[in-house]
Simulated scan of single mutants.
Amino acid sequence: MKQKKTLLTVIAILVLFVLVYLADQNLDSYKMRILNLCAIYVVLGLSMNLINGFTGLFSLGHAGFMAVGAYTTAILTMPDVVKGQNFFMVPMMKPLDTMHVPFFLALLIGGIFAGIVGYLIGAPALRLRGDYLAIATLGFAEIIRVVFTNMQSITNGALGLKGIPESSNVWWTFGVAVVTVLFIGSLINSSYGRAFKAIREDEIAAESMGISLFKHKVLAFTIGAFFAGIGGGLLGSLLGTIDPLMFRFFLTFNVLLIIILGGMGSITGTIISAFIITIGGEALRFLDESMTIGNLVIPGISGLRMVVFSALLMIVVLFFNRGIMGTNEITWDRLFAKFNKKPLAKGGSKL
């Protein structure tokens, strides 16, 4: 049975990449960017869900980890000439001004740096709980943004970085998303994942069973920060430009919205929600523009798109107060059970 499920997983991944190939060949650049953003938000959503959903911590510092990953990846991939063009006011610190590594290595280093920052923040902050932890992590994220704004010889300060090589494409974004899903899924189904869930349900009971609260909280926080850094690196490379104002609380809020709508503690829900929110936000963009219905011209209202989108999300949350999936997953076992149900015998009744 295990081999069968592994084979089905491999087939599903192959089908996904066939669809990605077809999309890459047939869709225009605008639609491809939306698909890239969907995959990136899957990575970011899963990284935050590991912390907030599976471990039960209330962290609001995700934008800071994304900033670390985005800046690290950008600095390590930018050509020397482009660095010189960006740092025209204050020269870039040596040896960063001549340092250049392949995109994959830069992405990995960005994730590692974000994980280290996550560990340094988590070690003191995770002794707090609830709202106090949220305030502390939000404060640390803002500190990271302010530090980046003032480190002009490394980050170019408030001017940001432009001309970042646009290495992110559907193969990178969906490839990283698949790896993230497989890794988080394996982690959650391991003994560490069961410990995370135990901490989420009842910290006192988990500790009485011999689970080290501090160790597992810091581990979840560090891994979540690592994948947030990876997602930030992909996002910066996709956009081609970054600046400190990108990494304000609103970015954390977008990721938080994904895991709340999809379900706190559901990998499947996070994936579905990332696509719904990213595509839905773009599909409603026509509401900001003027519309003509017969002889009637309705002037566009700036921001109406977000008002309608927020109202739709509120309706969904009201009817699905635990998110689309809650804590449930779409697994092979669940699908087998659904399709292997035998019909009731004639005249029989369901017990």
Score class of each variant (00 low, 15 high):
98 T>Q: 07
40 I>H: 08
222 T>I: 01
78 M>P: 01
229 G>P: 02
111 G>V: 09
62 H>Y: 09
287 L>N: 06
238 L>D: 08
182 L>K: 04
53 G>D: 01
35 L>F: 10
32 M>T: 15
309 F>A: 01
125 A>E: 03
252 T>V: 14
243 D>S: 15
136 A>G: 10
252 T>G: 13
284 L>P: 09
60 L>K: 07
79 P>A: 11
313 L>C: 04
349 S>D: 05
121 I>N: 03
164 I>T: 01
62 H>Q: 13
110 G>K: 01
228 A>K: 02
344 L>M: 11
171 W>L: 10
77 T>Y: 02
284 L>G: 13
343 P>H: 14
123 A>H: 11
192 Y>N: 14
149 T>C: 00
62 H>G: 11
305 R>M: 09
255 V>C: 08
301 I>S: 01
191 S>C: 00
101 V>M: 06
190 S>A: 12
296 L>D: 03
24 D>Y: 11
48 M>R: 04
14 L>A: 14
182 L>T: 02
351 L>G: 00
54 F>A: 09
148 F>Y: 06
135 I>T: 06
188 I>V: 06
171 W>M: 05
220 A>D: 04
123 A>V: 15
156 N>F: 15
9 T>G: 10
169 N>P: 11
87 F>W: 06
174 F>L: 08
130 G>V: 08
261 L>Y: 04
222 T>D: 13
97 D>Q: 02
6 T>D: 15
96 L>P: 12
116 I>K: 06
340 N>C: 14
133 L>Y: 05
81 V>R: 03
331 T>F: 01
302 S>T: 04
211 I>N: 06
62 H>M: 09
216 H>W: 09
263 G>C: 12
207 E>I: 05
305 R>V: 08
118 G>T: 12
